[in-house]
């Protein structure tokens, strides 16, 4: 029972982390390696808005999400736009942005937040306390995570399948030339994708971070998790991403329960390698993606 409930929570955490990345890369083919760093940055920003500038919690969150979206926009407009279509450069440049943010935060922190001094930077949970579900105590924050994660995935699915902007996002992923002929502005759409993706990374951060401390290292882990979900699930497929999150969430929970926490990352890499060996296009990936990757 313990494993089922915490496994579910874990899985939804994976899904939350990965949705932003899936939206940006899986859907509009812009690799955003700054994903993890924006996740951490939003944590830092929210913390310093609340603790250094004494803002209320909700406005602080909204403000830092706005900043995250702005950063995504700036990254695309200033840097990635110049190397569109050259995957090597896109990867290196966005990874460099990510390192600038993470290592800068680790050494300098922002506005009273010194990233390297103590491990005691914690965002407060939305609601304190625990509840007993079938004999297992779960705190409210974890329930909020599950609710928010499910709602977010549904909303994003609706967004990419039933709104004009969302359809444009998918269009440039499938065939950029054809989409441009039909009047989709590919640069504007990619900018939107990056802005939304960054905001989603931030949203994941404010929902998940109250469970633990905010540290710069989290950024690398988040990026790896997001990519793991993307690789295992298959590109651009929401169902695949959700399935992969659950697979990873439970696999890691079970391995932690059986062998201890150090084996978590071993399981992660092992699963990625297994999936790549047997289904290179991911669990629910389609033929087009197979060409893309193999």
């Amino acid at each position: 029972m313990d494993i089922i409930i915490y496994g579910t929570v874990n899985s939804v955490i994976f899904a939350l982390i990965a949705v932003g990345f899936t939206l940006v890369y899986g859907v509009s083919r812009v690799p955003n390696f700054a994903h993890g760093s924006i996740y951490v940055l939003v944590g830092f920003l929210t913390w310093s808005f609340v603790n250094s500038f004494h803002m209320n919690y909700i406005p602080a969150i909204i403000l830092s999400l706005g900043i995250a979206a702005l950063i995504g926009l700036v990254i695309y407009r200033l840097i990635l736009i110049r190397m569109r279509g050259m995957p090597t450069s896109e990867i290196i440049a966005s990874f460099a942005v990510s390192l600038i943010i993470l290592e800068g935060l680790r050494m300098q922190g922002i506005a009273g937040f010194k990233g390297f001094i103590g491990p005691f930077y914690v965002l407060q949970p939305f609601k304190e306390g625990k509840i007993n579900i079938l004999g297992v105590f779960v705190d409210y924050q974890r329930l909020i995570i599950v609710g928010a994660g499910l709602a977010l995935v549904t909303l994003l699915w609706l967004f990419t399948h039933h709104t004009k902007t969302g359809l444009a996002l998918r269009a440039i992923a499938q065939d950029e030339q054809a989409a441009m002929m039909l009047g989709v502005n590919s640069d504007r759409t990619a900018t939107i994708a990056l802005a939304i993706g960054s905001a989603l990374a931030g949203l994941a951060a404010v929902i998940i971070l109250p469970l633990g401390n905010i540290t710069a290292e989290t950024g690398y882990r988040v990026l790896i998790y997001a990519l793991a979900v993307c690789i295992i699930g298959g590109l651009g497929s929401w169902a695949g991403a959700v399935l992969a999150s659950f697979l990873l969430g439970f696999a890691m929970k079970i391995s932690t329960a059986l062998f201890g926490a150090v084996w978590e990352s071993v399981v992660l890499v092992g699963m990625i390698i297994l999936i790549l060996l047997f289904r290179p296009s991911g669990l629910l990936g389609k033929q087009k993606e197979l060409e893309e990757r193999v």
Partner: peptide, 19 residues
């Protein structure tokens, strides 16, 4: 096992190995 991957996928998997 990762050589079947290209571009961004290979990049991230290779980034994971030192960690």
């Amino acid at each position: 096992p990762c050589l079947r991957l290209r571009g961004i996928y290979f990049a991230i998997v290779s980034f994971m190995f030192p960690l």
